[in-house]
Amino acid sequence: MCETCGCGDPDLVPIEVHEAILSENERGARHNREHFTEQRVLVVNLMGSPGSGKTAILEATAGALAGKRRLSAMSGDLATDNDANRLEAAGIPSRSITTGSACHLDAKLVHEGLHDLPWRQTDFLFIENVGNLVCPAVYDLGQAVNVVALSVTEGEDKPLKYPVMFRKADLVLLTKVDLLPHLPQVDVAVIEDGLARTMPEPAIIQVSAINGEGIDRWIEWLEGKRVAALSEAPTEERAEA
């Protein structure tokens, strides 16, 4: 007998499942993470609103690391290959993942994208997610770190309006800080306060892709994460991949 609605149907069977609805994506993300750990590549999931400066940061990163580190990139794009083309031009072997109408990348799209990208021979793989402050936060890709680009022109209330994204962030890059002198109304302290209320361990670096401000601190942060990830990585060979 159906005890919940009392419809009297004698054949209702309740099954307790208690399972993550996105368990398939979680499996895919674990699989990707195994590949990344095994190859000792630090994978960065770079998220943020459309136009927050994600590609510009990666262009500046390519410039700063040229000849020092090997990089590759994937960019999720609804309709074009523009970002991958910009990154190639900046010297980063890149591939675009055209998502069509999908508002985010998922673990399976990233796994497919790995097939024709020379990511194994690199130190860092950057995944530029689809420009969106909500959906990408829901899908684990297998990355080591989540970085959110938030530009100074987006409005100081963004951390409080999009707590899901900022809770997942390991680092917020406050971008386009070269514009601050033209924006007397923007108070960086308000943005930082919003982040302290949404990000359990707030880490913020102010950067400009135009004048290079803060890029050295960003590189330092990346190198620190790489060292930490490599020292955590298991040394014995993994059986399955």
């Binding site: 054949d11 069977v13 099954i15 208690h18 609805i21």
Partner: peptide
């Protein structure tokens, strides 16, 4: 020390009730 989210990020299938023939 930093706080941690104790609850509130669930996307979980809890339970299914289905009609099974005898």
């Amino acid at each position: 020390r930093p706080a941690t989210l104790a609850e509130g990020d669930e996307i979980i299938l809890e339970r299914v009730e289905m009609e099974v023939p005898d």
